[in-house]
């Protein structure tokens, strides 16, 4: 399980996050919603170690990883996808996932065959038909699946997904939701940033609402959706509001 406590991030004079705490328990999908610019991606960056927060701690399964570098945190089971895709453009879908599987193979205490793992994941995320294509040939929606596949290839205990369904159509999103639930039910803590409220309602056990760098509300999706403070924050700032 993931516990981030009191995270603050400052960009120059601008407080992108102030004293944000968030929990993502194992075996559940936890939602993180908020209008654009709320600081969701920044929070992911702080949790994974891509940027150093000015305050706050991060614990993974009770262990303090705040002082660890990016790759060390990853080895504690933290994996993520990027809102702005970070695909390896010279490589195919299969090779993209294989790179992650190979790296995981190197540090994992219980490595499997990375080739086999790669094929498993390709089937699991539904990319078999395009596995041989160069990733730049794919539409964004499928690019996000490649990112998910790469993250899964690290067999994460905590999985951070940054708007993974944007760019996917309705049937793809539905499939994706089922996949998420399945990943979570195998014991992974999933933290999901998503604008598609119906997906959030469907898969999340708990939702955190972030606005202007602060947590506005926490609770089960249905409750959060009725919360007047949340409605207020969303009105006029973002169209991806409640259905």
């Amino acid at each position: 399980m993931l516990e981030a406590r009191g995270i603050s991030v400052r960009f120059g004079g601008h407080m992108a996050l102030s004293d944000v705490s968030i929990d993502a328990p194992a075996g559940q999908v936890t939602g993180l919603i908020g209008p654009n610019g709320a600081g969701k991606t920044t929070l992911f960056n702080a949790i994974t170690g891509l940027l150093t927060p000015s305050a706050g701690t991060v614990h993974i399964d009770g262990r303090d990883v705040t002082r660890l570098k990016l790759h060390r945190r990853a080895r504690h089971g933290l994996a993520r996808t990027f809102q702005q895709l970070e695909l390896f453009t010279m490589l195919t879908v299969r090779e993209n996932i294989r790179v992650a599987a190979d790296i995981h193979h190197r540090w994992s205490p219980e490595p499997g065959d990375p080739g086999v793992l790669t094929e498993e994941i390709i089937d699991r995320v539904g990319l078999a038909a395009v596995a041989g294509e160069r990733v730049t040939a794919l539409p964004t929606g499928q690019g996000r699946l490649v990112e998910l596949g790469r993250a899964l290839a690290c067999r994460p205990r905590i999985l951070l997904l940054d708007e993974p369904a944007s760019g996917q159509d309705e049937t793809e999103t539905e499939r994706f939701g089922r996949l998420l639930v399945e990943v979570a039910s195998s014991g992974t803590a999933v933290l999901l940033v998503e604008h598609d409220m119906s997906l959030v309602m469907e898969v999340c056990s708990n939702v955190h609402v972030l606005d202007l760098g602060q947590i506005l509300a926490v609770g089960p999706p249905a409750e959060v959706q009725r919360n007047p403070v949340v409605l207020d924050a969303y009105l006029g700032t973002d169209t991806g509001g409640a259905p």
Binding site: A74, F88, T89, W107
Partner: peptide
Amino acid sequence: RQLVAMRDSEAACATFGLN
């Protein structure tokens, strides 16, 4: 393959646990 991957995104490689 890994070098070519790092050429595009060192950030992604590091999040897989690569030093």
